[in-house]
């Protein structure tokens, strides 16, 4: 052997001593530091992302415990308080849209319903639809992306075109048309739950290509890595390779882009509600509140528009900040 200083033949023990010096800091930690742990350490340093995450948690808790919160701090969302409405103008009595310690966000013009309760209840609709739709996109997108990237060839070409079609689909027009023809009850559902199901389907079924494309790209590059060859040389079959070797490496991108898709879907749901395709009255939803406000009311009572607008803005921003931070923490390129 002529490379390097010739070691004493067979001295594997001495070279182990020198080669096994663990990386600094890991010396005592026998339990390995997984990439998840490292990402978490990085995320903890990212204060903006953490702030986003905290807001997201509060929003979710708020939606889950809406009845308790409202019982404590407000009035039932569909309870009228017309005695607090100026009969001539139709606007709430008092400054700033009637904000008081009884009505934290003021009142709805005309009916006098508690805006705070309606915003809190509205978050249920927004988050529920966005979460379910995103989960649907995630499942379809991951399955299609992995199939496309793993098998390649004409399957990949076919799924690629399919994604193009879905992304180019005139979705708003389609949903407007769908509402016109949808019956009052279908699939054993009716009323609000039918609408929710429809919105989840429309949003989820048409936004999977966003995730699908990313997962396809990642699968394509993972497939070429030698650890896949190593698994195959051990005799591993396709399902083993996908589930044990590829998927663990796909969890991070799935998580990142799912988080980033949620705010997009919240906006989408708001837009559909705004166009009247969303949840029917009297159920509270942010988009529908904006529609109401936009019918001229915001000129006399701007607070009626500000609160639902702010709710959407804060929610979308929080999810985006958290998602961006998650991406920075998990991004393999930073490693």
């Amino acid at each position: 052997m002529v490379i390097g200083p010739e070691p004493v033949a067979g001295d594997t023990t001495t070279l182990v001593a020198e080669e096994t010096t663990a990386p600094p800091g890991a010396a005592k930690a026998i339990e390995g530091r997984s990439l998840w742990r490292i990402a978490w350490i990085r995320l903890k340093r990212d204060k903006i992302a953490l702030a986003g995450g905290v807001v997201v948690i509060f929003l979710i808790l708020g939606a889950v415990f809406a009845p308790f919160i409202v019982a404590l701090l407000g009035h039932p969302p569909n309870e009228f308080h017309q005695n607090l409405i100026d009969i001539n103008l139709g606007t709430p009595i008092g400054k700033f849209g009637g904000i008081s310690k009884d009505f934290l966000f003021g009142l709805e013009p005309g009916s006098g319903r508690d805006l705070f309760s309606r915003i809190v209840y509205g978050s249920r609709i927004s988050l529920l639809i966005a979460f379910l739709a995103t989960a649907m996109s995630m499942v379809i997108g991951t399955v299609m992306g992995v199939i496309s990237g793993y098998f390649g060839g004409w399957i990949d070409a076919f799924i690629g075109r399919l994604m193009d079609v879905f992304l180019a689909f005139p979705l708003l027009l389609f949903s407007l048309a769908l509402v016109g023809v949808i019956p009052d009850r279908a699939f054993g559902l009716s009323g609000v739950s039918l609408r929710i199901a429809m919105l989840v389907f429309i949003i989820g079924f048409f936004s999977w290509p966003y995730i699908g494309r990313i997962i396809r790209g990642q699968t394509l590059s993972l497939r070429e890595r030698e650890f896949v060859d190593a698994a195959r040389s051990l005799g591993a079959r396709g399902p083993y390779i996908v589930v044990r070797e590829l998927l663990p490496n796909l969890v991070a991108p799935i998580l990142i882009y799912t988080t980033l898709l949620i705010p997009t879907n919240i906006l989408f749901e708001a837009a559909l509600s705004f166009l009247g395709v969303g949840i029917p009255a009297p159920t509270a939803s942010w988009g529908a509140m904006l529609t109401e406000a936009s019918h001229g009311l915001y000129q006399v009572d701007p607070f009626y528009m500000i609160f639902p607008g702010l709710a959407i803005f804060v929610t979308v921003l929080a999810f985006n900040l958290f998602g961006d931070g998650l991406r920075d923490a998990l991004d393999p390129r930073a490693r």
Binding site: L35, E226, F227
Partner: peptide, 29 residues
Amino acid sequence: IQMIFQDPYSSLNPRHTVGAIVGAPFRVQ
């Protein structure tokens, strides 16, 4: 017949522990 790979950085799955990697042959076979 087994193989040792060229690139020690891409031949080990970054999401698996050493135990899982070296134990994979037993699991697969």
